[in-house]
Amino acid sequence: MIELKNVTRRFGQTVAVDHIDLTVETGEVCVLVGSSGCGKSTTLRMINRLLPASSGEILVDGEDVTGMDLQRLRLNMGYAIQGTGLFPHWSVARNIALVPRLLKWPKERIDARVTELLQMLEMDPASFADKYPQQLSGGQAQRVGVARALAADPNILLMDEPFGALDAITRENLQLEMLRLQRQLKKTTVFVTHDIDEALRLATRIAVMDQGRIVQHDTPENILRRPASDFVENLVGKQDRGLKLMALRPVRDLMTPHDKPRPAEPGADGLKEDDSLRLALSVMLWQDLRQVAVFDHQGNETGVLLRERLIEGGV
């Protein structure tokens, strides 16, 4: 658990972070979102003391970070940043091994961990371990950045716009990857972004920041349904809130289930239970369907989604 109590950070006369209180529960993903210069990165960097707080208290699992040994504090927090910050003169394996080496793990354990992480991020260890960062694509490099942050299995992950420099498709892939990993690993995560869609997709709770203050701290659904101010309302987009809400809910919520799953006919088209309602609506509109079949992971048809049901109950 991370707690910020009345934390302020000044740079000379300007106040970058203005008396904020924020609690990140263990295992949740807290996304700090806001326009550039709103203090979100500063807030993140105060947690691992890359920037000291001017006043206030920051507690990690109940312990004040100011009193903690700097290296011990940071070694226990994964850190991933925009543009990866991979060491250009180290191979992928050596980069991922950064923190385990600082912790003086034995070599076999480090090698095993590197292999495990590369596999977890769906990169073939045999072909990637010995490559150098400049030989990777942007998406691959960022995966390595995430693997490096996870290397020593820290309790806390700090991510500062890690996907900010990637193209839209790669970014979406990595966001899905993050969601998958997070379901598995349940790290306490603080994630900074300026992209509200990224925030809505990844967050357990979102903290919207403006001019150094947290203007709303709530679940994605509540942020969309009950924005606390005009600023938040503008940020989430007044008009397409409906679609954004639909994007948060899976098809499973609204489908009409069959009595028992039926094996799918070959070549049958449809949605998966995990797909969002927004995708379902899009498919229906495009193919002009009144209903669409829903399949589970094994490919069995488990139900159908009706258009009326979607329009009535989707938001």
Partner: peptide, 9 residues
């Protein structure tokens, strides 16, 4: 690079 290294301890 420096920021990442420092941030990771």
């Amino acid at each position: 690079v420096i920021d990442a290294g420092r941030g990771m301890g």
